[in-house]
């Protein structure tokens, strides 16, 4: 296990380096001069002199490689630069909004589990029954609905028509229900489908028949032999989804005026506040990589074939 862990972490080093290079280069894709954007946001008239001074201040006059190394050095000290708009350290700004996004994502995760686990389980158990057909229909439609549309439909029905839930914003737990469900819907649909396929595959395995032939209790057969094996591929996909959910929250946050990272980054895009966008890319990617590493470790803990790989 230690070996596996070491291998995975070592493998991450070049990836992280590459990620940092791409993130760094992204700023240089900008069609306008960052110095000019800085001055515009700071309400300073962009005279040639001011631009030159800003370029020196932002280090834009140095060679690209030097810029990268100084930038990387600062990033490693958690200094992601200063927001052009607020003059605050970018990281502080993003960390201020991050808890709201994590809350939203976490709640969606609960929705996904609460919906897809039972639906996938029962629809595979009662294959080709009415229940199964309903679940498959849900899985199909749910995965094809754009989340911004779902959000508005939900707002219309539950908040405006029935007046059950608050329309927008963050506050009580009631505020959390609609946005998190909206974010969860397509994932819940996808996982219902994935779990169903995976369970059906495993129900047909010889080792399940053999477990039954040994007279193992049905509950143990389903849990230990079928479900545990079926959840492995689902788990890997889940790690990926968690990252996508963090990113997917951008749309949902904008639909529901949820004050999270996603909403902040969209306003930064309109403001051309490049350090914020850059830091956002790096931050979400790091979370994404960390989650996937955790999933890999969990997978290794469950599956001996992975754990003992190489030994």
């Amino acid at each position: 296990m230690g070996k596996l862990l070491l291998k995975r972490v070592l493998y991450l080093i070049p990836i992280l380096l590459g990620v940092s290079i791409i993130t760094f280069i992204l700023v240089h894709l900008v069609p306008v001069d960052p110095a000019q954007a800085y001055l515009t946001l700071a309400n300073i008239p962009p005279t040639d002199k001011a631009i030159a001074a800003t370029r020196t201040m932002l280090g834009l006059d140095k060679p690209l490689f030097v810029q990268y190394v100084t930038w990387l050095g600062r990033v490693l000290r958690l200094d992601f630069g200063i927001s052009y708009a607020t003059r605050e350290p970018v990281l502080n700004e993003l960390l201020y909004y991050l808890p709201a996004t994590i809350k939203l994502t976490g709640a969606s995760l609960l929705w996904v589990l609460a919906i897809s686990l039972p639906l996938g389980f029962f629809s595979s158990l009662y294959k080709d029954s009415v229940l199964d057909h309903c679940c498959r229909l849900f899985a199909f439609i749910g995965a094809s609905m754009p989340s911004f549309w779902v959000g508005f439909l939900l707002i219309y029905f539950f908040a405006l028509k029935l007046n059950l839930l608050p329309v927008m914003g963050m506050g009580s737990i009631w505020h959390l229900i609609l946005p998190s469900f909206t974010l969860a819907l397509s994932y819940a649909a996808t996982y219902t489908r994935l779990l169903r396929t995976s369970l059906l595959e495993n129900l047909d395995q010889t080792f399940v028949l053999y477990a039954r032939a040994r007279g193992i209790r049905e509950r143990l057969v389903m849990g230990r032999h079928v479900l545990k094996n079926a959840l492995l591929p689902v788990m890997t996909a889940f790690g990926m989804s968690l990252g996508y959910m963090l990113a997917g929250s951008v749309i949902v946050e904008n639909v529901f005026a949820w004050p999270g990272v996603g909403r902040y980054v969209i306003s930064s895009i309109f403001n051309r506040d490049y350090p914020v966008i850059q830091c956002y890319a790096l931050l979400t990617t790091l979370i994404f990589i960390a989650v996937n590493l955790l999933v890999d470790i969990a997978y290794g803990l469950i599956d001996p074939r992975i754990r003992m790989d190489g030994s």
Partner: peptide
Amino acid sequence: QLRGKEMAMIMQNPMSAFNPL
């Protein structure tokens, strides 16, 4: 309760009869 106790079975392909986990 009879299965495995009074009547036992050996499967065709031992490689796939055991739970890999």
